[in-house]
């Protein structure tokens, strides 16, 4: 019985009317891009955004999300961002922090971008999801696979560290 009801639930999920993928892109590309700028820097963010959207499109219509499509997109983006940072760190061992992104041409607040980029991965992820991706804490928790209090704690710690740097 249990397995039948689970199959019915899965079937509902598959047959759930999904919006056209491009609509998701148009709704979420900007916050996704800003989140990735914070994670990997603006130059790599372009590539990571493409990779995120392609990976999402490939499995779109499958079972890899629970109806929260925004959270699902950010989960993929976070993975792409972290993959990129790891690959970059492996390829270019250097004395400077390997995951520190180069600043974008258009920005004025260079210092702050750099400081965000210099945060430990978890704090940086939480802070950028919150303030660049504009996600509520419940979604940050789900994207990072941590508890909601832990998500808040990471954002708080990240902000505290940025504030301290500034004084």
């Amino acid at each position: 019985m249990a397995s039948i009801s689970r199959m019915v639930a899965l079937y509902r999920l598959v047959s759930m009317n999904l919006p056209p993928f491009q609509r998701l892109v148009d709704q979420h590309a900007r916050p996704l891009h800003r989140f990735l700028c914070g994670m990997v820097g603006p130059v790599a963010a372009d590539d990571c955004l493409q990779e995120t959207l392609l990976a999402a499109l490939r499995s779109y219509g499958g079972l890899r999300h629970d109806g929260n499509l925004r959270g699902w997109l950010f989960t993929i983006a976070r993975r792409k961002g972290i993959d990129h940072v790891r690959r970059y760190a492996r390829e270019t061992p250097s004395p400077s922090p390997p995951d520190r992104p180069s600043p974008p041409q258009t920005m004025r607040d260079t210092d702050l971008w750099d400081r965000v980029a210099g945060l430990p991965t978890k704090q940086r992820t939480a802070v950028t999801l919150r303030y660049l991706g504009d996600l509520p804490y419940a979604e940050i928790a789900s994207v990072m696979s941590i508890s909601e209090p832990a998500a808040r704690q990471n954002v708080r710690a990240g902000l505290a560290s940025l504030r301290k740097d500034y004084t």
């Binding site: 914070g38 603006p42 963010a45 372009d46 974008p104 258009t106 607040d109 702050l112 950028t128 902000l159």
Partner: peptide, 17 residues
């Protein structure tokens, strides 16, 4: 700091799209 992060400018991403 939070407000300043929110207001950080970022490059145009239409090329990537």
């Amino acid at each position: 700091v939070a407000g300043r992060i929110r207001n950080l400018p970022s490059d145009d991403h239409t090329g990537a799209l």
